[in-house]
Each structure stands twice: as C-alpha cells, then as structure tokens.
Amino acid sequence: MRLDLTGKTALVTGSSQGIGLAIAAGLAASGARVAVNGRDAGRVDAAVERVRAAGATAEVLGIAADIATDAGTADVLGRLPDVDILVNNLGIFGAEDPLAITDDEWRRYFEVNVLTAVRLTRAYLPGMTERGWGRIQYIASDSAVVIPAEMIHYGMSKTALLAVSRGFAKAASGTGVTVNAVIAGPTHTGGVEDFVYQLVDRELPWDEAQREFMRRHRPQSLLERLIEPEEIANMVVYLSSVQASATTGAAVRVDGGYVDAIVP
C-alpha cells in the first residue's frame, strides 16, 4: 500500500518532539507539505531539520506559536490559512493527587488539551468541506478509557477528545472530510527511559528494561513493550490518506492491546 500525500498540506500541533515529531516526519515522508508547531522557536527549527532529514519530499515549515493562546492561534492561522490535514497532537500531562487538583488546573488541562483542538477544527473544517476533502485527527490516549487515578484531569481531557472527534465527524458528514481520534498507548517518548529506570534495574539493557517495566507495571499490554512514536505516526499517516476514506467518526487504537476491551 503506497500512501501518497503529495499536494496536501498538513499541520501537526505540538510537533517539536515525541509523537508529534514522528507524525510530522511520517506525513512529510509520504509527500505532504508539513507545518511543525511548538512554543519554542529553537526547538521548532531543530524539529524542522529532523523532519527534512527523515526524507521529506515537500516543504517543511516551522511555526513557533503557543496555540493555547488566542494570539498564538491567530499567528498559526495567519501563516497557514488552509490545511488539508490537521493533526491535533498538542497535550500536557502530569501526576497529581486527585483531591489537590485546583479549579485553575482543571481549566488549564481542558484549555490546552481540548479547546486548542476545537478552535483549530472550527477554523479549518469549513475550508475542507468546501474543497470536498480533508482529514482531522485528535491524538487521544489509553487514559481516555482507562482513567489513571493519579491523572484524572488528563484522562478527562482525553475522554473529551473522543467526544469532540465523534461530534465533528457528524458535522462533516457526507462532505468528503473524515474526522477520527487515535488512542495511543504507553509510548517511548522523552523522559520515559528515566521513568522506567526508576522502577526497574538500571543495569538492564533498554530492551530488557522496558519489557520488565511493562510486565510489572503495565501487565495488561499485549505488546509487552513500549510503543515507538513512529508506530503511532504510521496510523496517523494511513488515516490521512485516500485509502482511509471510509474511516470516520472512529476512535482507532494504537495501544498495543493495553485497553482490555474489544472496542473503545
């Protein structure tokens, strides 16, 4: 299956590192013109170079802007008024005592993880429907379904993204635009190795260490290892393609079997 995105323009939010960076690289390698987004200009520039070096065949541009703010969103829309593919990847997370999460923190998680995606969808969906083609995706998490006790506010925001995705898919019904959520499982991103080695023998090689971590601390995973960001990106690239034209309104799992359910 050849996934050819030549002639398409994609925006991936929060893509200066981790899963977002892998998604940007995957889309670019498939021929899309890709906009890399993050708050820090230096990290965005470095990410742009990494995407180019990974095999980009079209333009890769960097947009340093905080889309959790009105000014940042306006900057993105000013630089990139139309896109064919929107990947809402930006998200924050952190562990906190559930009874100590303040109202302001609840609002911050909803603002950053949910409303940023809603605003960009609201801005870009009309153009997609007018052109009769488009792809919108929301990067959710296994935490949307298996709410972590230490990150209820994060889980809440990811559950909300599933609802947002399904709702906008209905709004785009019959237009040629598909809208989906991707449920990512435990993934090997920045800082995860240090976290793993806090819980398992530091003398173990990485492959053994992560498998020991999964066996002891994420035993419900059927993959029995952390997911690589590129594996999440593979699904996003497919959902962005012509071949995925009949997949919409879905919550597609790339979780290594972590969620113990047949459907989300």
Rank of each mutant, 00 (worst) to 15 (best):
A244K: 00
G127V: 08
T178M: 00
I63R: 09
M128E: 03
G132M: 08
V236Q: 02
A251R: 00
A251T: 13
L125N: 03
G42T: 06
R50C: 04
T175W: 04
E49T: 14
T116I: 04
L226S: 02
E231A: 12
I23P: 03
L223W: 09
A246E: 13
R218Q: 14
V76S: 00
E230Q: 14
T159H: 14
A56G: 08
S143F: 09
G176D: 08
G127R: 08
A58S: 15
E150F: 10
V114I: 14
T159P: 04
R50T: 14
E224Y: 09
A46E: 14
Y138A: 02
K170C: 06
I92A: 08
E59G: 08
Q210M: 12
P81H: 07
V34G: 01
G191Q: 12
A58D: 02
Y154Q: 06
S240C: 13
N88Y: 01
G72I: 04
L61K: 10
S15N: 12
D66E: 13
A172R: 01
V48H: 10
G249L: 04
L5Q: 01
L5R: 00
R216Q: 14
G38T: 01
E224F: 13
I262M: 10
F110D: 09
A250G: 02
A68L: 09
R108H: 09
G14K: 01
D40C: 10
A95S: 14
N234E: 14
W133G: 08
K8S: 06
A209G: 13
G26F: 06
G185L: 04
T129V: 14
N234Q: 14
Q198D: 15
M214I: 15
R39P: 10
G55R: 05
R107V: 12
G191H: 12
S16R: 10
R218C: 08
E203M: 07
G72W: 11
A71V: 14
L120K: 03
R202W: 06
V34L: 04
A100S: 15
I147G: 11
A32W: 02
Y197E: 01
Y197I: 02
F213Y: 15
V34R: 00
A64L: 13
V114F: 01
R122M: 08
L120I: 06
A35C: 12
A181I: 06
Q17R: 15
Y197N: 00
D40R: 15
K8G: 02
V259K: 01
D201Q: 06
V192F: 06
G26E: 07
I232R: 09
S165W: 02
T121H: 05
G132K: 10
G174A: 03
E208F: 11
R52S: 09
